[in-house]
């Protein structure tokens, strides 16, 4: 039986053998080495990319940590400032209280001293008045030299006592 188009099985097999050899040659000499090189290069750049991403992540974490610490420092400063302000306020209040007490004491002492002085001046004035009255009486008595004068004196002395 003749095969259409003169297809020859033996020649097909020789063609196949030829192609299998060609396939092996192309695979081992070209396809595989070139593909391996390309895959290695892809891997190399992926590793670099991965490393860069990791470094970026670490930098982000460090930045966050610094920001957190910075915020803590600000809070700490604020707390210390408030504590200092509070202490100053307390000290001021205490000082004012002491000053007030001292002022009150000074005023009280001054008042007492003024009153004593007043009493003393009043006593002196009374004494001086009494002396002046005695002196005047003596003068009057000496001028009139009578019992009438004496009576006047007594009356005056009595009036004076009543007034007091």
């Amino acid at each position: 039986m003749s095969v259409p188009l003169n297809i020859n099985l033996q020649q097909i097999l020789i063609h196949l053998l030829n192609f299998v050899i060609l396939f092996a040659v192309l695979y081992f000499f070209l396809y595989d080495p070139v593909k391996k090189f390309m895959d290695n290069r892809i891997q190399y750049y992926q590793d670099i990319d991965e490393q860069a991403k990791q470094n970026l992540q670490e930098a982000e974490n460090t930045k966050k940590e610094y920001l957190r610490k910075l915020n803590c420092v600000d809070n700490e400063i604020e707390e210390k400032r408030q504590a200092a302000y509070k202490k100053i306020s307390e000290n001021t209040a205490e000082s004012m209280l002491l000053a007030k007490q001292k002022a009150e004491s000074i005023i009280s002492d001054a008042r007492k001293k003024a009153e004593d002085e007043h009493n003393k001046i009043l006593e002196q004035a009374q004494d001086e008045i009494a002396d002046m009255v005695v002196a005047a009486t003596e003068k009057i008595v000496l001028k009139s030299g009578t019992s009438e004068s004496y009576e006047q004196f007594l009356a005056a002395a009595e009036r004076s006592e009543n007034n007091e």
Binding site: N8, Q10, Q11, I14, H15, N18, F19, I21, L22, V25, L26, F28, F29, L30, P33, V34, F37
Partner: peptide, 29 residues
Amino acid sequence: KDVNPGLISAFTVTGILFVFSLIVRIFVI
């Protein structure tokens, strides 16, 4: 054996590609 010219072409092409691949594998890659 007497074969079609296409088979000789196939051998020639394979030979050319073999030499080319070998040179590329040794000297270029």
